[in-house]
């Protein structure tokens, strides 16, 4: 992939994320998530331009971009109070029921592959209304029929919850999550791929419209906004990522 193609891929993902976040007031972003952060920054910039209400972005682990003064627990308390509208989770494995696995593959505890651990997922998935599952790799080893370990469960009818998955975004496609049915529905396929590519590379079953639309490309104004203001804003927290984006110009 050339640097320009890679930049176009990132710009598309950033634009989709801004769209998925539309309407929120406060989004929290993980410390090593430049693309979700950029999507949130794009929405913030657009809202400003269009005179829409401002949005707050908390970048975890950053001292400049967080509003918290009560230590590491405050984000979790804030989510429990209903003050965080959107968040991003990844997953070494994501299954068709929306469950995610951040622990590893094989039998617990001596797993074949061990990942870092569940972080705050088991809790935040229940409490944040719009959790966007973001995983760039779109392959059958990531998108599996059933995760080996449920770090966080998507649907739990036995308890009341406001939180859960909203969408799944990969390098190939965008899916919506249907909480009633407890499964994904393909919304669109990114330029350069077909609905068959998505079917071939997805390990779980999902609903799809008869004709799957292509994901719309960012318009010129959006691309200019990303290459200007958003890259500048990103440089504070994600200097390496911002440099790569700027170098592709």
């Amino acid at each position: 992939m050339t640097m320009q193609d890679d930049r176009a891929r990132k710009e598309l993902l950033i634009t989709i994320i801004a769209g998925l976040l539309d309407g929120i007031r406060h989004v929290a972003v993980g410390a090593s998530s430049p693309i979700p952060a950029a999507g949130a920054m794009l929405l913030r910039a657009r809202n400003e331009q269009q005179g829409k209400p401002p949005i707050s972005i908390s970048i975890l682990g950053s001292s400049r971009h967080n509003f918290f003064t009560n230590g590491g627990v405050e984000l979790f308390d804030c989510a429990a109070q209903g003050r965080v509208d959107a968040f991003f989770l990844g997953g070494g494995q994501i299954d068709g029921a929306g469950n995610i696995n951040l622990v590893g593959t094989g039998d617990y505890p001596r797993m074949d592959v061990r990942w870092p651990g569940s972080f705050g997922s088991a809790y935040l998935y229940h409490l944040i209304p719009r959790v966007i599952l973001f995983r760039e790799e779109h392959s059958p080893r990531v998108l599996v029929p059933k995760v080996d370990f449920v770090s966080a469960a998507a649907v739990t009818p036995e308890v009341k919850r406001r939180g859960g998955p909203h969408a799944l975004l990969t390098n190939l496609a965008l899916f919506d999550f249907d909480r009633e049915r407890g499964g994904f529905r393909l919304r669109s396929v990114h330029p350069g791929y077909t609905a068959d590519d998505v079917r071939d590379r997805t390990g779980f079953d999902y609903a799809a419209p008869e004709i799957v639309p292509p994901t719309p490309m960012p318009d010129r104004a959006t691309v200019e906004l990303i290459r200007g203001r958003i890259v500048d804003e990103l440089a504070e927290c994600y200097p390496e990522f911002a440099r790569t984006m700027a170098a592709a110009a």
Partner: peptide, 13 residues
């Protein structure tokens, strides 16, 4: 007491 977690395999381990 703590919110969430229900449905997670953490409760098994």
């Amino acid at each position: 007491p703590i919110a969430g977690i229900i449905g997670s395999d953490l409760l098994q381990v």
